[in-house]
């Protein structure tokens, strides 16, 4: 079987894979930044006492978590033009990933904030801090440390989800594999190569997670 496996073709297509990898990386970075923005706003809404903000946030999070990402992607890709909004595929892709991942990020951030003991809030209140000061000086710095590992986990999921953008013709990593598969009828070579690249990205992010956990060790220790 292996004698049919063409390493030469892989090498020949390496520049294409390289471009795909670069595209996957930067569209993931942009999407994750978008997801953080969406997530912070949703988490803030979800933590309010009033229903006015909480209910729309919860409805959004549920809607995103209950439906497949592919359906959401198609909804934006085919639905937005019907509403007169025409965007490049790449923009639609980044938008879909941001909106989708944002819902999960919102829950991670909310859980991080709620994990800070009530006594921390009370200590801030008792020393005359305003809500904003408490959040900025006491709660968020502690929540941030708790949140980093699950956020990096979510980033790994996002990188893998970005493969779906190949279905709307974004020239990312999976698309490169598809091209090799269809041009030369070499699906094994094409998809094994992209798998190796995804593995590389995975270990990169995992290393980052481990590093951040070690860096945040002492100062984050609970009493």
């Amino acid at each position: 079987m292996l004698e049919n496996f063409s390493f030469r073709t892989i090498v020949e297509y390496l520049p294409l894979f390289g471009q795909g990898l670069v595209t996957t990386v930067w569209l993931s970075v942009l999407s994750f930044a978008g997801a953080l923005a969406v997530g912070i706003v949703l988490a803030a809404m979800n933590l309010q006492r009033g229903r006015l903000f909480r209910i729309p946030a919860k409805a959004y999070i549920d809607a995103v978590r209950a439906t497949p990402l592919l359906a959401q992607l198609y909804f934006l890709y085919f639905g937005l033009p019907r509403l007169g909004i025409i965007l490049p595929e790449l923009v639609v892709g980044i938008l879909a990933l941001s909106l989708n991942s944002g819902a999960y990020v919102a829950e991670i951030i909310r859980a991080g904030i709620l994990s800070i003991p009530r006594g921390q809030v009370e200590a801030g209140v008792a020393s005359g801090m305003t809500y904003v000061q408490r959040m900025r000086l006491v709660i968020l710095p502690q929540a941030f440390k708790v949140t980093i590992p699950p956020l990096l986990g979510q980033a790994i999921v996002l990188v893998k989800d970005s493969a779906l953008l190949s279905l709307i013709a974004v020239a990312e990593l999976t698309r490169a594999g598809q091209l090799l598969a269809s041009d030369r009828f070499m699906p094994a070579e094409g998809f094994i190569t992209i798998a190796a690249f995804y593995l590389l990205l995975y270990y990169g992010l995992k290393g980052l997670a481990a590093l951040s956990e070690r860096r945040l060790g002492l100062a984050g220790a609970r009493t």
Binding site: P117, G119, Q120, E122, A123, A126, S127, V138, P141, Q142, K145, A219, G220, A221, R222, T223
Partner: peptide
């Protein structure tokens, strides 16, 4: 206000 459980900021 001094709390029973101290409530120092751990960070």
């Amino acid at each position: 206000f001094v709390f029973q459980s101290f409530n120092l900021y751990p960070h």
